[in-house]
Amino acid sequence: MSKEKILAALRHNQPEISALPVNLAFERDESINLVEKFRVIAEGIGSKVYVVAGLEEVAALIAADFPEAKRVLSTVAEVVSSAIPAFELHEDPHTYADVDIAIFKPRLAVAENSALWITEDRMGVRALPFITQHIIMLVDKNTLVPDMHAAYEKIGDTDYGFSTFIAGPSKTADIEQSLVLGAHGPRSMTIFMH
């Protein structure tokens, strides 16, 4: 059996135990404005950021930014309206192939890299944040953390089937290092920070 073979070879060849670093706390500049930091980084990697007073402003801005959108759906109840229907679950993820805009509410927002942590229970289906042409994230300022260490502290041992950090629209620079937004996933990301 290969498993036994691999494990035996490892036990034979591994070096003496080397200790795991206990301290993962790095010095942080506590004075920085997390909203501002987040916004600068997010815009730097191609996201559009609106800092809004409340979610009631969202619908009008979406309508203005995406006049062409046909199929829009929201996994967030607060913004559901006649123009923005609620997400409905279909077992087959392929049925979401024609979604133009999908709206989500991530659990955490990381200031240092503008990554948004979203667990499966907030995705509708796993494919949705990727298959949609445009993605919209409703970010509560209170979910902002300064960096990835802080993010994983918050995440802790939470259980999920699937979860992801998303930072910006999908992108590629594989052709001569020219940055192109909209590789296979969303062509744009709009963040409403409230």
């Binding site: 980084i41 990697i45 990381v110 240092e112 890299n113 503008s114 990554a115 499966e120 289906v125 796993r126 990727f130 990835m148 259980d159 999920y160 089937g161 699937f162 979860s163 992801t164 950090f165 998303i166 930072a167 910006g168 629209p169 999908s170 992108k171 996933g185």
Partner: peptide, 14 residues
């Protein structure tokens, strides 16, 4: 880049 666009954590099959 500060992070890749996607850092996906696969824990269980859907």
């Amino acid at each position: 880049q500060p992070i890749t666009t996607y850092s996906s954590h696969f824990k269980k099959p859907r």
